[in-house]
Amino acid sequence: MKILVCITHVPDTTSRIAFTDGDTKFDKNGVQFIIGPYDDYALARAVELKEQSGGSITVLNVGEAETEPTIRKALAIGADDAIRINAFPEDALFVAKQIAAVAKDGGFDLILMGRESIDFNGGQVHGMVGELLGIPSVSPVMTLDIDGDTAKISREIEGGKEYMELPLPFVAGCQEPIAEWKIPNMRGIMSARTKPLEVKDPTGDAPKTKVSKFELPPAKGDVKLVDPDNMDELVNLLKNEAKVI
């Protein structure tokens, strides 16, 4: 089985978020970067599938040179080789086109990625890749098993769970509990150094979207606790202070 895992290089979830350049750019100063948490689940499942039935894992990242430590971590976790498309991944369609270009002739049985990145959180790339390649795409995939040429997956839907079978190849946007995150072992880290990491220039048109401004969500206000026996007080506060009724 040949698996392509697409990973993002995103700020650690505990990072302090700030912007520069007139609120048009993310302030990377002092921020630690990680493999996108949902992509990390996808990678972990890919490693498990490879352990079960052999094959190979290629990781793909669309990013500038600074993302290489993140890519090396994916190699340390168990990917065999890596490709970095040398471009900033701001625009979903642009990223999807880069992935599709790599996947088109790659002969991959599975294309896995997170259900969304945790920086721009577009959640569109898996669908676009499927469309560009003319193969199915499903998201969020919460369990994934392979039986011959067929994949069995499940996902949560409104009010219940959906079980599906579909033919390979296809694109999956993954999330927990598809697998547990894997900690790279020391030997994996040492061998990551010697695994191939190919850098390619982006193909096609330049990104079409442009960020005009980022804004932080408004700070949370103080919470007032009202005794359940004192409904009048609650109504009074909602009406006169919060002014919501």
Binding site: P69, R72, K73, A76, I183, P184, N185, M186, I189, M190, A192, R193
Partner: peptide, 10 residues
């Protein structure tokens, strides 16, 4: 090195 830092992070 990047490798040592990765070991620390792991």
């Amino acid at each position: 090195s990047e490798e040592q830092k990765m070991m620390a992070a792991a």
